[in-house]
Amino acid sequence: MADVESTGHSVKLETLDFEGPLDLLVYLVKKNEVDIYDIPIAVVTEQFLEYVEAMTREKLESAGEFLLMAATLMRIKAQMLLPQPDLDDEEIDDPRRELVLKIIEYQQFKEIAEHLRDHESSRRLLFSRGYREWLAEDEARAEEEPANRATLGDLLRAFADVMGQAARDRVHHLEPLAVTIEEKVDFIRGRLRREGRSSFRELFVVGEPRSHWIVTFVALLEMAREGEIRLRQAERFGDINVFVGEGFKK
């Protein structure tokens, strides 16, 4: 196999930034000028791991996706090292197959994204009647972007705050939860239907046991994931507000 000798291929990648593990793989395949249909998996895996190692020190948050891919690469590498059973004919599935298809598909969309970038550039040079209003609308939309959006960190911080104030049960009762996520989802929906928005704190009913508050929190996470609600924060570490989202169910 061609991909066993991997020493001497080490690369310096630390200055580059990648959108994700597939982006990095596309880069490595191009850089090494290898045939996508015959990727030297050992070389690529080694370089990939080098990058992940350099990266995890700085951006731990996206490291998970890279580590997952690293595990996939190592699994493939191991499979490639196993002696191929002497199967009669077909059904010999190259362990790299699935990954190769993914890389190709991703590469195609990267290209389409570049087309879109070109269109964006040329469109910016054309002006029509009403373009000021149109731009203003677009900017207003753009402005609502990440700064105001509550992150998972913000949410956890707010939840920790809330829980700090919860009545602490002196005695631990082992009882089935008296409330379901669905009930809390309904409760939150009801509140938003009436008022359009709510503060994060208000959703935690004073006097309820802690377990209920945890269920409320899970319900909020679930609704945010589904796009039913939007979580906004006016300022860093400020109060979080809950708004009706695109996927809100009436």
Binding site: E19, G20, P21, L22, D23, S62, E65, M69, K102, E105, Y106, F109, D138, R141, A142, E144, E145, P146, R149, R225, G227, R230, E246
Partner: peptide, 20 residues
């Protein structure tokens, strides 16, 4: 397809009216 979470980016696109 992208191999990463698209949570934040999808929300931006929804808010900018690019997708619905």
């Amino acid at each position: 397809i992208r191999g990463v979470s698209v949570d934040a980016v999808l929300r931006t696109l929804l808010e900018r009216g690019m997708v619905e």
